[in-house]
Amino acid sequence: MSTPQATAESQAHAPFLQHHFHEPVQQAEAAKIGMWLFLVTEILLFGGLFTGYGILRMLHPDAFHHGHTYLDRWLGALNTVVLLVSSFTMAMAVHSARTGERKRLVRFLLATLALAAVFLGVKYVEYSHKFHEGLLPGRFYSHKGDPVPGVHMFFSLYFVMTGLHGLHVVAGMVTIGWLLRRALRGHFSPAYYNPVEIAGLYWHLVDMIWIYLFPLLYLIS
């Protein structure tokens, strides 16, 4: 076995160093590569939906145009601002972790969590309005009086795309909650903060996907 003494020594300097890495930098870089690769898979996952959106919009241009008028673009814009600000607070959380300011880290993580909750709250208001009007996906669409056929296809994509994005927001909130717990226990320091950093990368991606969803769904003209 590798000398237990050396292992114990490096453990004392870097408490979260896993046994198969030589040094914390190597571990942090590996984690970053892993997260970037995961983000690539996320982009391709949504990429399939964006492609489907492109094809169906090409097949039903009028239905998509009419469908988007049922969305409240001000609520969509509000949510865009909310997520952009949350990306800022997340970036500040990473910065605070890097500089070792624990209180600020906790505050910024809390702010990000709160903004994510606001986003989901707005989404809830929008969804319940759509449910009420019968603006539901595909087979369940029951809204009457559309001047063009096929509006249900717009709402199929609206719900699948925003629904999948919403699940990612929830996953991000769980991750940030976990970071918060670890931050409160004092796990993070300028020598070890890569969980905050890679969770930050994920959160920016969730934000970025919304940046694309907002014009594609709310701003068709």
Partner: peptide
């Protein structure tokens, strides 16, 4: 693989919610 993921997910949603894609 993620593209297969979204494909089978859409197939599942198609069968359960009739999204119609």
């Amino acid at each position: 693989t993620p593209v297969l993921g979204i494909t089978v997910l859409l197939l599942f949603l198609e069968r359960v919610f009739g999204v119609g894609i």
